[in-house]
Design a protein around this nucleic acid. Structure first.
Lengths: 116, 116
DNA sequence: TTGACATATTCCTATATGGGTATGTATCGT
DNA sequence: ACGATACATACCCATATAGGAATATGTCAA
């Protein structure tokens, strides 16, 4: 088999840099496809395709406004990612603490050395 | 062009469910490949490949111990994901607050209705 | 209705897998 | 040195894109 579909879950949807950019732009408020195209510098079809993926995993929603389609970020979906990563926070925190201790050790040693 | 390489960044590396499982297992402490194979129920080559991807984006590190290779989670890499998602926390929080308000509204209306 | 504008969809191509199978390589015990 | 154990790689296949180009669809204005 091949890689899983990007439309299957939020993690896959967000794995694409371009789509993360779209999300970041939409965090600033609703945008039409055209605006996104201008801001991203991608082709219109590409932007539409990325939006479709984000739509399928419900990271965005659409609304019609005349000839435009206004896309809006549905941030709840990102919560899932945030929470997943957060589970490991104690671990990287631990490392930082450890680093802090090492620094303390080095300082002591240094002081001891300069003492000689 | 094709899809981006999974070895290019942490987001891609974590997009694969199997690799997230590996990360979760390693969060419990160092493991040998064999242990991971047993716990994941995947084939040994597959596990090795996933570990390689995680290694390339530095989400894990390896250590030799006799015939075994002990993999260890390097959680700092996940911090990046956590922080990226965290940027949007105000947005989903906002929605929840809004939801709360709606609930309050409904309660009031309900009380008013039962009052009639 | 006709034309212009805004998007979505389709088609085509090159590429990067994920999984299975077979094989290479390093380490340990005898 | 030899066989067994523990992994890593190589190879093959089917699939899912990301992009680009062309086209279809939908909406508004005259």
């Amino acid at each position: 088999m091949a890689r899983a579909a990007t439309t299957s879950d939020v993690f896959n949807a967000v794995a694409e840099p371009r789509r993360r950019e779209v999300i970041e732009l939409l965090a600033g408020g609703e945008r039409s496809v055209g605006e996104l195209v201008a801001e991203l510098g991608s082709s219109q079809p590409q932007v539409s395709k990325h939006l479709r993926v984000l739509l399928e995993v419900e990271l965005v929603s659409v609304r019609r406004e005349g000839r435009h389609r206004l896309y809006r970020l549905e941030a709840e979906g990102l919560k899932q990612i945030h929470e997943w990563a957060q589970r490991f926070e104690p671990l990287w925190q631990e490392r930082l603490d450890l680093l802090g201790e090492v620094v303390q050790e080095l300082k002591k040693e240094e002081e001891g050395a300069s003492d000689e």
